[in-house]
Amino acid sequence: MSEEQHETVTPDAETLAARLQEKLTQGIYVFLGLAALTLLEAGLVGSSTIVMMLVGIAKAALIINYFMHISSVWSEDDH
């Protein structure tokens, strides 16, 4: 079980901090994308249901992929 061994090595503080910064920046970008899509949605008020749902699905995809890291369900890695 190479993964297990990989786990047992605790990353040092510097690596952790660097990784943390990387993830935090990614979160901000995702948020900006979501905010833009929300504004787009509000601007499209009254337009067709399908367009609204497409924007909604785009937002949902961002949340599920980046915030809820769905890939961790099957990749068995820590996110």
């Binding site: 901000i28 995702v30 929300t38 949340i63 980046y66 915030f67």
Partner: peptide
């Protein structure tokens, strides 16, 4: 619209909190 944004920002904050605890930053 404001309520939606409030929830969206809270989601961002939650993401930051989770990432922080996963990397051992308790204050954040």
């Amino acid at each position: 619209l404001i309520a939606t944004f409030v929830l969206l920002v809270s989601s961002l904050a939650m993401n930051r909190a989770e990432v922080a605890i996963a990397h051992g930053d308790k204050t954040k």
